[in-house]
Design a protein around this nucleic acid. Structure first.
Lengths: 147, 147
DNA sequence: TTACGTGCAAACGTTTTGCACAAAC
DNA sequence: GTTTGTGCAAAACGTTTGCACGTAA
């Protein structure tokens, strides 16, 4: 469900950000469905749709949107940035072979409470502050398991 | 407890690897205590001890030692490789501010069984194979919490 | 003696930066 | 009118590679 330019403008303003065309294009892309994409892939995907945003614009705006809390950043198996449009708390599986990323929402809020429990215990054990009890597992996606 | 060259040679052979002086130097460094280091920091630390190993030698050997299971690799908050000499199952906290990494061993084997439980449930929910139920939390270390 | 490890320098992919111009407010 | 965003090109950064030489087995 893509938003109108005016809705996007309001959304950005409500997060304290200026409106710009590139920001609208990026948010439209992410807003369509849950997506995980690295910057190069985003660049290509937008180009295919006729939107030629420079890589520096993408990097800058992804950082801005991330700081505002509109997207999440995670790391692929070789360390590249991957941006996730789903900001509801959930976990990730990253395929070590092909780089594919999938979300995991475990049944009910149980997985969240387990993650919170781990977070709380780790905080007590170490004195650290843990920002987000979101977990990233390395593994193999179904199709890469067949090798 | 640093090993003698002969012990290091045997250790490497028992993992199917050849002995070399750089491998001994790296293993000695990691063997002294639990360490987390990125490649640049390892390079500098070894140089201070009078060991001038090239970066390519470090990268290559860290990959070799990792594949053999003698060290673990994780990712820092900006995506760089960090190598961990402690290969017992445990979790990590990564400081988003200064990059510091600390190990978390939660009381008893409970945290491991929780992690295994999460792993099993995520595998069932998604069809993925999850290699290692080791978790990496992003957060702030005690000294960076004071900012 | 054969396979493998080393160091150097060059190449590589990803991300950041400096700058002149344009757009948002 | 002032502040902020954009695109380009160049630079920076972490990592990998090709190659001639040295070392382990």
């Amino acid at each position: 469900m893509s938003k109108s330019p005016d809705q996007t403008r309001e959304l950005l303003h409500s997060f304290g950000l200026r409106y710009s065309k590139p920001r609208e294009i990026i948010l439209d892309y992410f807003g369509e469905k849950d997506r995980h994409t690295n910057v190069e892939a985003l660049y290509e995907a937008l180009k295919e749709r006729g939107h030629h945003l420079s890589l520096s614009t993408l990097y800058l705006n992804l950082a801005v949107l991330k700081n505002a809390g509109l997207v999440r950043e995670l790391r692929g198996s070789s360390g590249e940035a991957i941006f996730d449009s789903n900001i509801r708390p959930h976990h990730h599986l990253v395929c070590e072979n092909c780089g594919e990323v999938t979300d995991v929402f475990l049944a009910g809020d149980t997985s969240e409470s387990i993650a919170w429990d781990l977070k709380n215990r780790a905080e007590r054990a170490t004195g650290w502050y843990i920002k987000e009890p979101s977990l990233e597992f390395q593994g193999l996606c179904p199709s890469c398991q067949q090798d």
